[in-house]
Design a binder for these strands. Sequence first.
DNA 1: ATTAATTTTTAGATTAGGCTAAAAATTAAT
DNA 2: ATTAATTTTTAGCCTAATCTAAAAATTAAT
Lengths: 218, 218
Amino acid sequence: MITLTEENYIKAIYHLGKQGENNVSTNAIAKEMETKASSVTDMVKKLSEKGYADYKKYQGVTLTTKGKKIGVNVVRKHRLWEVFLVEKLNFSWDEVHEVAEQLEHIKSEKLIKQLDAFLEYPSHDPHGDPIPDENGKIKSIDKILLSQAQIGDVCICVGVNDSSSEFLKYLDKNRIALGVELTVVHKEPFDNSVSILVNSKALIISNMIANNLFVKVS
Amino acid sequence: MITLTEENYIKAIYHLGKQGENNVSTNAIAKEMETKASSVTDMVKKLSEKGYADYKKYQGVTLTTKGKKIGVNVVRKHRLWEVFLVEKLNFSWDEVHEVAEQLEHIKSEKLIKQLDAFLEYPSHDPHGDPIPDENGKIKSIDKILLSQAQIGDVCICVGVNDSSSEFLKYLDKNRIALGVELTVVHKEPFDNSVSILVNSKALIISNMIANNLFVKVS
DNA sequence: ATTAATTTTTAGATTAGGCTAAAAATTAAT
DNA sequence: ATTAATTTTTAGCCTAATCTAAAAATTAAT
């Protein structure tokens, strides 16, 4: 049996390794998990012994197939629950993370299968992130950061890079949501800010914002 | 902060003390929690220190107001989740317990408030047990065990005493569900079995079954 | 009212996970 | 190519929750 803590470490490694491909450093995991590097070393050894990860001293860690499977499944559960919270329980997209962090650890195949069906097999979570299918397959759409879009581009907002409450509330305040159309009017070279047209209103967006908003050019 | 284990002990004490009124013995808790008496002693001391229970050596334990509040809230969450699983995710009443045992520990006021609304404020769970309201108030209906009903009584099945999967499957097999009408035809003094009419069919029910089925005489 | 049986508590160990401080290895900088 | 800085690991200790075995208290039985 896998413990809650092990599952959380696997999730962290999964995210840091971009789907668990690259070597992930001890310090990176420590930062992500808000714990000390020494604790990470211990846990990473254990994950390695249990067959969830490959680890060599001082070389960082990668997930095994078995570990990746767990990682992607936690992500699947997290995102399905987020959809549930927003669609069925009227949570807003900046409120779901904390609760989904808890719900993602509930163990029941049937629960997730039925939840998926109940939600009508959603493809993306409320932040635009793709929901892996039951085999762990993720279909990603070709999205770019708003900061990469060209002047004149008409695009649809499809996701956020940062899903912190502060950022999401900023977007709400400016009536930017997934599915909303944006037109790039001007890009200021001095500070890399972007002037856009959204909901037929002009809006100037800082580089920081533009770097955290995913769009699809239409 | 209360730990998961503490919460589970409180729940056990709550149930054993019938809403936490009576003194509960160490051994009773050990049996309920499937653990050793010595572990119970340790935990009960801790609950007492933390103000969730009153405990005197060799005298058993009772919940404080603070402890009862937690106990009743766990029960509320457990039963609401059971309703969700049956009503929305097509679980059958014998499949919900295990999953609800996990879901009952999710911490989020808003989650439960919204879930309650989403389910349209159910008064009872799928086994006929009442769902405490957000203030912990439980409205109990006047139900009796089928074994207590008199010959000629026409009654409605309103709950189960034992909610083990085996018992519930027995009921399913015999088309007995909550809301179903039963007529008591005969009570056999020799073995205390009960002959009933259910769905216009005659059925003989053992004393053991009759002792685990709650009905309301109409 | 003693003795016997049962229940409960204590004492001491164990396991999971985490921490601090020091040592070892790696990487960066002169 | 050494020295310096950083990262990672080790060693030793801590807390929560558990266990076993033995001791103490309570309850039951003669």
